[in-house]
Design a protein around this nucleic acid. Sequence first.
DNA 1: AAGAAAGCGTAGCATACACTACACCTAGAA
DNA 2: TTCTAGGTGTAGTGTATGCTACGCTTTCTT
Lengths: 218, 218
Amino acid sequence: MSSLPPRHPTARHSPTTQRGLKRREALLDAAQRLFLERGFSQVSVNDIVAEAGGSLSTLYRHFGNKEGLFQAMVERRSHHVYATLTGDDIDELPVEAALIRFGTSLLHKAMDDEALGIYREVVAESPRQPELARRFFDAGPGRMRRVVTDYLDRRIADGRLPHGDTAELAGMYLGMVLGEWHLIQLLQLEAPPSARAIDDRVERCAALFLSGLLARQP
Amino acid sequence: MSSLPPRHPTARHSPTTQRGLKRREALLDAAQRLFLERGFSQVSVNDIVAEAGGSLSTLYRHFGNKEGLFQAMVERRSHHVYATLTGDDIDELPVEAALIRFGTSLLHKAMDDEALGIYREVVAESPRQPELARRFFDAGPGRMRRVVTDYLDRRIADGRLPHGDTAELAGMYLGMVLGEWHLIQLLQLEAPPSARAIDDRVERCAALFLSGLLARQP
DNA sequence: AAGAAAGCGTAGCATACACTACACCTAGAA
DNA sequence: TTCTAGGTGTAGTGTATGCTACGCTTTCTT
């Protein structure tokens, strides 16, 4: 049985010096590589130190414990990822083109090896680390859904789409785009789809979704 | 670092006697409960024996090692689950009603605690146990997609739906139904939706999807 | 230059855990 | 009743691993 987490989560320590930041980054880099490659429970803290080149003491001073390191790694990465989600001209595009842009963006992100690794680990650890789960969702899938929801709201406001539950619709559209592909990549059952295949699928999704939306008005 | 799996996967042993079968089932029951509750790496074989009441030697005679037990558990459960997927009258229903039946069936299954537990564990272990991943997919999500694909094929054959890539369409529809709900349940971010909420969502999905499908013909 | 803050490195503790060995018991078929 | 395959129980073994201790060195500030 695993020991309970230490009573005092050993308050994390933010380094101030250049050298400190460098060491912290190196540790996070190593953690990222190893955790995503082998999985949280398959990597020891010693492995990470060996990879990063720092020292065990430094690791514990910065992150408190193994879970703290994991969390810091996931957080850092979440910031990197969902940066350039939409161009600024998104509202000028035809609706279908905008949907296509959202879709391909999502699919490219979701098929990425590193993103799949994070997803696997977070899903696996979520029952033990609920806060991590929430942060992952908010920074990743939740954010994406929010962007699409807002977009749909604006299109309803300017009359280019009929009224509807935009949050739900956004979830449906994004789910449709991912379809079974996401799971297939998570389980590594097939080679990842080509950029071309992604574009094709998303095009058909957008067309179907938009037709459905527009046809729905009585 | 964890030791490599034993070179000879210690050929599994199928018991013949009543008593043997009973013991095997008890072990699988305990494994299922504990693995799905706490996760594969958080449960020791000793925990399982303590829960099941058998003896460690018996466990190893039957399943060879810890992964063997896990695999046997997943397999046994896969058989149980996807039994009554479609009534036999599915082809007589209006298409929309059939879609709704598929959708609610999927959503009920996917929101089930035990199913979520298996999903988490399989996703987490899949990089280390690719065969398990394939079997899970084939017995679960893959099977579901196949059923819908076949249904769509029949509707195209009898002219009630326009021509299209049925496998892709099935994946899209099922993905749309799951949407973000599946992830939210996986991460335990919200309480599970009520039966009523499930029905509502699926109804809207089916309507949107079908409208889109039918509108698509030029 | 001095002193503090942070980093390094090694050594080790305590424990958990997969798996094995071995001696003994039980059930049920012949 | 006896024979035997399979079940039980306990006591290990080897090792991995999270985490701490501690003494030394480097870097930065003042």
